[in-house]
Design a protein around this nucleic acid. Structure first.
Lengths: 108, 108
DNA sequence: TTGTTTGTTCGTAATTTTACGAACAAACAA
DNA sequence: TTGTTTGTTCGTAAAATTACGAACAAACAA
């Protein structure tokens, strides 16, 4: 993809969001935070059997996608879903899955 | 992630679906097929400025994710959204984005 | 048979992702 | 000061992703 940009901004947003959610650890973290009333101060490596540096990497990706943020609560960090951006992400996903499919009958 | 499997099947499904949608070409193809009443017989490389082998690779990924299928219509292939699996994918995404977030007030 | 059309597969290269342990930094307690 | 806790950054390695052109295969037309 280097000759020209044929994609809409919405399509790029969807693909970026999908990329952020393309690993089970990251899906888990988002769901887990939602279950914890959106924030969590504990150690996620107690729950997830991955190295802390690996978790940090995944959290960084979620941060860069704007889905979560970390608030300092020394010596810990309180991770929270980013409500506003999460709403935007939800709207993007909704409009994507609501695309109308009126398949012809010969199409399984 | 080799010590143990802490993820639910749903979480794995979401991450696999997200991975399938994590590239703009693949998001484009899904939306494009939906706009074409779910099927398309033409040459997508006329629309997307990528090599045909690269497109074939992306289509393969969408096929393996179960989102599309190709029906032979020699010498062409008629690509269609896989209605049934697409419905399942939509339901999975819906239940994911409908997770309840009752953030505490100190959480942005 | 020979050529055309269409899409896949192969070979390859560059880049990105995933993962780990080690080293580091910040804030605090003893 | 020294040690503890917590999370990030660094260095590194293995694997996966993305992309291309060339070669190939299937179905048909000339």
């Amino acid at each position: 993809m280097n000759r020209l940009e044929p994609f809409t901004e919405k399509q790029l947003q969807i693909s970026r969001l999908a990329k952020a959610l393309s690993h089970p650890v990251r899906v888990f973290v988002i769901q887990f935070l939602a279950e914890q009333s959106c924030c969590y101060s504990g150690d996620l490596t107690d729950i997830l059997p991955i190295a802390k540096s690996t978790l940090s990497q995944h959290l960084k990706e979620l941060k860069e996608a704007g889905l979560i943020e970390g608030e300092l609560e020394t010596p810990k960090i309180r991770y929270c879903l980013h409500k506003e951006n999460w709403e935007i992400a939800k709207e993007n996903l909704k409009s994507f899955i609501n695309i109308d499919i009126s398949c012809s009958s010969d199409c399984k």
